[in-house]
């Protein structure tokens, strides 16, 4: 295994594009090292991106949107009050990954590009409408987060391409988001079901919503029907029931050691309701939290 420490994205892409064997980018390393250790993947070329300037920065742009560097650790996001104030759900999703120790290393992009359907940081980003900036041998592009994972362990990134930043839209007024996951313990588990809800209100009526589910399909997915179920409502009992039904209907999970199809489908509805209530409370008393 060759270990590279490129000083620019161009260099990193160059190494990746020229590589003939298995290539992995190393930021937090919390997935790469586990796979290395378990002999699942031993890269021929390991490209440590942490020496590229700016990758550890959390930046709020003048329009209120956010750019999060690809080597920003979860712990650094939870230490950024302005980001938490804007996007508590996005930060919650990241913060739920692993232990305090893992938080010291794990990154949003790593969580996304590992391609796990159960990745905790991904539904929150999808619900927020986040995109990623990508650079590669054929130039740059911007892709919606929900279009990155294409299946368990697979992404839409082409050979030589790498993510250079996560872009989260400006929060705007009267908005709120939340992420909840179900695990059997209180910590340290992979999500059995994850659900993020992002919404905006006018008075007490929901005007915009995005609902994303994790761990219930081959990839995290945006569930338009679930959003439709609550848009135009005050999140009353009927809307919540419709939300739960839409969330459960969107599930296409598997039976495995972490949960059954039946359980995941049911709990997706439960979590959608609970996450929606939190997001709604955050939106309706925005700034008051």
């Amino acid at each position: 295994m060759r270990y590279h420490t490129p000083a620019s994205f161009d260099d990193a892409v160059g190494i990746a594009a020229d590589a003939t064997g298995v290539t992995r980018f190393l930021a937090g390393g919390t997935d790469v090292l586990v796979q290395l250790r378990a002999d699942i993947v031993t890269p021929d070329d390991l490209i440590d991106v942490k020496h590229i300037p700016g990758v550890r920065d959390i930046t709020q742009n003048s329009d209120g949107s956010w750019a999060i560097g690809i080597a920003v650790a979860g712990a650094e996001m939870t230490e950024c009050p302005a980001l938490i104030a804007d996007w508590p759900g996005v930060v919650e999703g990241m913060d739920l990954i692993g232990s305090t120790q893992v938080q010291g290393r794990a990154t949003l992009v790593g969580n996304l590009c590992n391609g796990s359907p159960a990745a905790d940081a991904v539904p929150g980003m999808i619900a927020a409408g986040a995109t990623v900036s990508i650079t590669g041998p054929d130039g740059n592009r911007t892709v919606a987060v929900e279009d990155i994972p294409t299946g368990p362990g697979r992404t839409a990134l082409n050979k030589g391409e790498m993510v250079t930043a996560v872009n989260i839209p400006a929060r705007g007024d009267n908005g709120g988001d939340a992420y909840l996951r179900f695990i059997p313990r209180t910590e340290m588990d992979i999500a059995v079901v994850g659900c993020a809800v992002n919404l905006r209100v006018d008075g007490d009526v929901i005007t915009e919503a995005r609902v994303a589910l994790g761990a219930v399909a081959p990839t995290a997915r945006l569930v338009a029907d679930a959003a439709t179920a609550i848009i135009g409502t005050t999140l009353d009992e009927g809307a919540l029931a419709a939300l739960a039904a839409a969330a459960s209907a969107a599930c296409n999970p598997i039976d495995d050691k972490r949960g059954t199809i039946e359980f995941r489908t049911h709990v997706a509805g439960v979590l959608a309701q609970r996450a929606a209530k939190i997001a709604y409370a955050r939106a309706t008393c925005a700034g008051g939290e």
């Binding site: 390393g29 090292l33 232990s99 120790q101 893992v102 010291g104 290393r105």
Partner: peptide, 8 residues
């Protein structure tokens, strides 16, 4: 920063 040295 607190980390697991097995993951570094």
């Amino acid at each position: 920063r607190l980390v697991c040295s097995c993951l570094v």
